[in-house]
Design a protein around this nucleic acid. Structure first.
Length: 278
DNA sequence: AGCTCAACCTGGCTGC
DNA sequence: TGCAGCCAGGTTGAGC
């Protein structure tokens, strides 16, 4: 999927087309996603105006008149705005129509989610899926020393490898498998280092590298691994050049030694055994 | 509490 | 060409 940069790029891509518009219909083509898409959604959303689209971690939050629509892209989800008249394609799962255009969730693997959270159930931040998320890596709450302090504090006494620790999203959200390897490389930290052994200096480097890597990826338009395309349906993004991810046995861009691939918590990790031991 | 691992589901690639 | 086997961006929840 889509990691945080791809979700942010998607948000920026769809926002100008549908913000401020009202829902003219909803089609659930296949509601068997990560959780079932509520059957009542079409009735509930009809006529509601979409005021803003925000993002929390990898969740998109579409604010409507009476609540929020939560959308997660899972591993293979793609959100695009297309003419309503355009034909349905295989793996299109949900369409939200705004007159002549519609927002479409295309998701082959069906790990995505479309959920409804009415204002009456409390603030969106308290939604069970959002409640335990760590801070936003690009917000003030993770800026400068705050990010480093957060990483340091949350990693104390943790024996889990720093790679898994970062991926878990409790110390900071939005760092998926690709950018996790990339951030650790930039910070010069070995992915197998137990999180609890991170020094203050390493936390400072890591907080900065997380911010830098994600910011660069957003600027590059998100990376396009396999099936990510932008909101307009154009396969426009080229993958941001990675330093280590998916480069097993290729020479490190810094020291030329071969990049190593290992498996941690059932996920591939890539690193440079020479550069990542500070 | 924290860690590991299976599971959700489908498509694409590799190798026989 | 066909097919089996393996791999893939995320996240929850069971079990220890």
């Amino acid at each position: 999927m889509p990691e945080l940069p791809e979700v942010e790029v998607t948000r920026l891509g769809i926002k100008p087309h549908i913000e401020g518009r009202s829902v003219s219909g909803v089609s659930i083509l296949d509601g068997r996603l990560r959780w079932p898409v509520p059957k009542s959604l079409p009735k509930r959303l009809l006529g509601q105006r979409l005021s803003t689209i925000e993002r929390r971690g990898k969740y998109l939050l579409l604010k409507m008149d009476t609540g929020h629509l939560l959308i997660h892209l899972g591993m293979t989800g793609v959100l695009r705005v297309l003419p309503t008249a355009d034909g349905v394609k295989p793996h299109d799962r949900v369409m939200i129509h705004f007159g002549e255009i519609s927002l479409r969730l295309h998701d082959p693997r069906k790990f995505g989610a479309v959920l409804w959270h009415p204002f009456s159930k409390g603030a969106i931040d308290n939604h069970p899926l959002l409640k335990k998320l760590g801070p936003e890596p690009l917000a003030a709450e993770f800026a400068g020393d705050l990010g480093a302090e957060r990483l340091f504090r949350f990693s104390r006494k943790r024996t889990v490898a720093v790679k898994s620790f970062l991926l878990a999203g409790q110390a900071v959200v939005g760092v998926g498998n690709i950018y996790c390897s990339e951030s650790l490389f930039e910070a010069g930290i070995h992915p197998r280092l137990p999180a609890g052994k991170l020094t203050k200096a390493q936390c400072e480097r890591l907080a900065k590298s997380v911010r830098d890597v994600l910011t660069k990826a957003i600027k590059a338009g998100g990376s396009s691994l396999r099936d990510f395309v932008d909101a307009h349906g154009e396969p426009g993004y080229f993958m941001m050049q990675t330093k280590v991810y998916d480069r097993a046995n290729e020479p490190c861009r810094i020291c030329k030694s071969p990049i190593v691939q290992i498996v941690q918590a059932q996920r591939s990790t890539y690193f440079c055994p020479i550069c990542q031991r500070r």
